[in-house]
Amino acid sequence: MAYSDKVIDHYEHPRNVGRLDDKSDNVGTGMVGAPACGDVMRLQIQVNENGVIEDAKFKTYGCGSAIASSSLLTEWVKGKSIDEAEQIKNTAIAEELALPPVKIHCSVLAEDAIKAAVKDIRAKRGLVSGGAGEAQEEAAS
């Protein structure tokens, strides 16, 4: 299969590979996919008090397109608020990387990963800063 230059670039020089402390209250973790399907993505975001993503790290088990999708995503989310980050659409990732139709699911997985990470940080913040009431408020909004 021929990969686009952008996929190859991200694959050969993946950005922001690593791990953040998932016990930290400032870190949201999204782990999506399944080994049996050949893709697992772990995306972590470090979020400051204002809800802005200061750092992002990923590790991905999967094909070149899955690795590239998650690498690109970490670049995109840095500096964004969590609200903005969760608006990122898989179609934008697929377009940027010129993914072929059989690899669209890699971009879908990346979208799922950021959504899961944001959900995780929201849950943590809810529990930490104000107790159950605030968490419910956030969940409702």
Binding site: A34, V40, K59, Y61
Partner: peptide
Amino acid sequence: RELSPLWDMYKDGIDLNTIEWAAH
């Protein structure tokens, strides 16, 4: 393996079979 979350988990002593994965 440096890029693989599964490798991390293996190194942390987590049995991957005990995790409920969301098949997609």
